[in-house]
């Protein structure tokens, strides 16, 4: 009987621990999502709150898809979404190009060096994100460190306008999100059996062939995880384009902010957010599929 009671307590404990993440998702994701979805189906009014109620007070529902239709009619939104996707994709590829050799180097370093290098990767997190972006303003502006050094070295004779360009946004995005690429890549590469690469070379593959035949496909879970961890936040990034970008680098995060706080068109802003979420769901589903496949392949 004691054993049975113990078993049931275990079951209860198990359910409780599983319930926590679900509860977390329910309270902090699903509920806000439902609220935003509800707002996106309302009409904007000048009132407090600034949108029409969802229920019309007579037992009916007062929903409208006007905001979504407006997203389709005004070209601004489509262009901004595309530009956001494009910039996030480029930043992700840049992170991958920089992060892969970094992760590879760290994974192959001896243990002492490896821990030091990993520490250096996460070290920037000790300083607030906002401060680090401000620091880039100091580095990139016309009288900033980079221009001053280049002028002093006589590489250029007048400052290059780095600030308020797409270039500055890319610098900010790559700098901020690089660790999110390096860490999952490191985790996969570190786990990889080095004998596999040796074996490929033993069987006649040149080092570059061994990389593309063995290392790259086996690193794929890390590549996908890293790319999503960079792409998703980069897609909705607001602070970096706002501080480093120019007026022409209008990204979806900025549009979202402006609709909410400048135009006070909450339903439209909510619709923008919902569409953004849908755009992000696609890569997430892709990730889950791929992870499931990998779990099957390396069980």
């Amino acid at each position: 009987m004691i054993a049975v009671a113990g078993f049931r307590r275990d079951m209860l404990w198990q359910r409780f621990t599983i319930a926590i993440p679900y509860l977390w998702l329910l309270v902090f994701f699903l509920a806000p999502f439902a609220i935003i979805l509800k707002i996106s189906l309302a009409d904007p009014i000048i009132a407090q709150p600034p949108f029409t109620p969802f229920f019309d007070g007579q037992g009916g529902v007062a929903a409208t898809v006007d905001s979504y239709l407006f997203l389709l009619t005004d070209k601004l939104y489509a262009v901004t979404y595309l530009k956001s996707v494009f910039m996030a994709a480029v930043a992700t590829l840049l992170c991958l190009a920089l992060g892969f050799p970094m992760a590879y180097g760290i994974a192959r370093a001896d243990e002492g060096t490896r821990n030091l290098l990993l520490l250096l990767i996460v070290l920037p997190f000790w300083i607030s994100f906002l401060l680090r972006v401000y620091a880039w303003m100091g580095l990139l502006n016309n009288h900033g460190v980079i221009n001053n050094v280049l002028i002093w070295l006589q590489v250029i004779d007048k400052p290059i306008a780095f600030m308020y360009t797409d270039f500055a946004i890319y610098v900010g995005l790559v700098y901020s999100y690089l660790p999110f690429m390096v860490l999952p890549l490191y985790a996969t590469l570190e786990r990889m059996d080095l004998d596999l690469v040796d074996a490929a070379q033993d069987l006649g593959a040149r080092p570059s062939q061994a990389f593309w035949d063995i290392t790259w496909p086996l690193a794929r879970p890390g590549v996908i995880a890293g790319c999503l961890l960079v792409f998703i936040p980069a897609m909705g990034e607001y602070v970096i384009p706002y501080l480093l970008g120019g007026p022409e680098s209008l990204l979806i995060g900025r549009v979202l902010f402006d609709e909410f706080f400048v135009n006070r068109d909450w339903p439209l802003a909510s619709a923008v957010a919902i569409v953004l979420l849908l755009l992000l769901v696609v890569p997430i589903v892709f990730l889950q599929r791929s992870q499931a496949r990998d779990a099957e392949g390396h069980a």
Binding site: D193, D195, L196, D198, A199, A200, Q201, D202, L203, G204, A205, R206, D213, I214, P217, L218, G297, H298
Partner: peptide, 27 residues
Amino acid sequence: PYERPVNMMFQSYAVFPHMTVEKNVAY
């Protein structure tokens, strides 16, 4: 190693996990 008339069977076997048996042998 890729130009030597020598092949090795590794202690860990180092069989490529993402390839079928046939692909491994054909590599």
